[in-house]
Lab assay of single mutants.
Amino acid sequence: MTEYKLVVVGAGGVGKSALTIQLIQNHFVDEYDPTIEDSYRKQVVIDGETCLLDILDTAGQEEYSAMRDQYMRTGEGFLCVFAINNTKSFEDIHHYREQIKRVKDSEDVPMVLVGNKCDLPSRTVDTKQAQDLARSYGIPFIETSAKTRQGVDDAFYTLVREIRKHKEKMSKDGKKKKKKSKTKCVIM
């Protein structure tokens, strides 16, 4: 069974824990209790493949930012979460993405942009803004509501699919490099 290491990042209060708990335990946590770091595991079937999701729910508070490099190193894919009623959390996505790329030393890291709290009427981040940002990053965008469960499975499952595509691409690139290195030079 394939294991996928997913990391949920975003500013404090955007609903990272609520999304994760909704996926794992099928219930909505409405009281806000700032996370330092929590880890969850769940076995699911995605596109006919049974897999184990190892999900790291991270601290959004700035005082825990020193811990970010460590979990970013171990993560295979990242859910970059903002709240649709919090423009600052949307603007912060850029910083999370840049930090992930720096730590992973790669421009090509599996990510999904997630606009959470889409059940709320007080939207300050337009869907088109988020779609445009995701398009500019070359990553999928999904709106979710941890409260109603809308888009929750889709967000995590899409990230797994992005990781699969990335692994497939990397193995193809690896095979191309191996083929090239088999060419021999004969000096007579």
Rank of each mutant, 00 (worst) to 15 (best):
167 K>A: 04
164 R>S: 08
133 L>Q: 03
175 K>P: 08
153 D>W: 06
161 R>G: 12
139 I>C: 08
163 I>H: 00
177 K>Y: 04
145 S>Y: 07
125 V>K: 01
141 F>G: 01
180 K>L: 14
177 K>D: 15
135 R>Q: 11
134 A>G: 07
137 Y>N: 05
159 L>M: 04
176 K>S: 11
143 E>G: 03
165 K>M: 11
161 R>P: 00
172 K>S: 10
169 K>G: 11
170 M>N: 07
146 A>F: 00
178 K>Y: 08
153 D>Q: 13
164 R>T: 14
164 R>H: 12
137 Y>W: 11
150 Q>N: 12
154 D>T: 08
130 A>I: 15
137 Y>C: 13
172 K>C: 14
127 T>M: 13
186 V>S: 15
178 K>C: 11
157 Y>Q: 14
146 A>G: 08
165 K>G: 06
158 T>E: 08
130 A>T: 08
151 G>L: 05
166 H>W: 10
177 K>C: 11
145 S>R: 05
144 T>H: 01
156 F>N: 00
169 K>W: 06
129 Q>T: 12
174 G>E: 13
153 D>V: 13
154 D>P: 03
175 K>I: 05
146 A>S: 08
166 H>L: 09
125 V>P: 01
157 Y>P: 05
135 R>D: 14
154 D>C: 06
167 K>W: 01
162 E>W: 02
173 D>K: 06
151 G>E: 11
185 C>M: 14
168 E>Y: 09
150 Q>S: 10
127 T>D: 12
135 R>E: 13
170 M>W: 09
130 A>W: 15
167 K>E: 04
153 D>K: 12
168 E>W: 02
157 Y>E: 13
135 R>V: 06
171 S>I: 05
182 K>Y: 07
134 A>N: 05
152 V>D: 06
136 S>R: 05
138 G>R: 02
167 K>H: 08
130 A>L: 15
165 K>C: 02
167 K>F: 01
154 D>K: 10
155 A>G: 05
173 D>V: 03
151 G>K: 13
159 L>K: 00
164 R>Y: 02
160 V>F: 06
151 G>W: 11
153 D>G: 09
167 K>M: 02
168 E>N: 10
185 C>K: 15
170 M>D: 14
155 A>P: 09
127 T>S: 13
165 K>I: 04
150 Q>R: 10
125 V>C: 01
182 K>S: 09
130 A>E: 07
149 R>S: 07
135 R>L: 08
159 L>E: 00
174 G>K: 04
127 T>F: 11
131 Q>C: 09
180 K>V: 10
131 Q>F: 05
164 R>N: 15
139 I>N: 02
153 D>N: 11
186 V>G: 15
129 Q>M: 13
152 V>Q: 11
176 K>V: 02
178 K>I: 08
126 D>C: 08
173 D>M: 08
178 K>V: 14
168 E>T: 02
145 S>G: 15
185 C>G: 15
166 H>M: 14
132 D>E: 13
176 K>G: 12
162 E>S: 08
141 F>M: 03
176 K>F: 07
155 A>W: 01
177 K>I: 11
188 M>T: 15
169 K>E: 14
181 S>G: 07
188 M>N: 14
130 A>C: 13
133 L>C: 05
136 S>Y: 06
172 K>R: 06
150 Q>F: 03
182 K>W: 01
187 I>R: 10
148 T>Y: 13
130 A>G: 07
132 D>Y: 04
147 K>E: 14
164 R>Q: 15
154 D>F: 05
159 L>D: 00
183 T>A: 11
159 L>Q: 00
156 F>V: 13
159 L>W: 00
135 R>C: 08
144 T>Q: 05
165 K>V: 03
133 L>T: 05
165 K>P: 00
169 K>H: 11
188 M>Y: 13
179 K>V: 13
136 S>H: 14
162 E>D: 04
151 G>I: 11
165 K>H: 07
169 K>C: 13
150 Q>D: 12
131 Q>M: 09
161 R>S: 10
168 E>S: 04
156 F>S: 00
166 H>A: 07
164 R>E: 14
129 Q>L: 08
165 K>R: 04
144 T>S: 08
125 V>M: 02
138 G>I: 00
175 K>F: 11
166 H>I: 07
139 I>V: 06
149 R>G: 14
180 K>G: 12
143 E>C: 04
138 G>W: 00
168 E>D: 08
139 I>G: 02
175 K>L: 14
153 D>A: 13
133 L>N: 03
158 T>D: 04
135 R>S: 09
155 A>K: 00
125 V>T: 01
130 A>D: 03
172 K>G: 10
185 C>L: 04
153 D>P: 07
135 R>N: 14
173 D>W: 03
168 E>V: 08
155 A>R: 00
159 L>A: 04
149 R>M: 15
125 V>I: 02
134 A>I: 05
135 R>K: 11
183 T>F: 01
154 D>N: 10
174 G>R: 06
170 M>R: 07
184 K>A: 12
145 S>W: 05
188 M>F: 03
158 T>K: 06
142 I>C: 07
172 K>V: 12
149 R>D: 12
185 C>D: 15
158 T>Q: 06
131 Q>V: 08
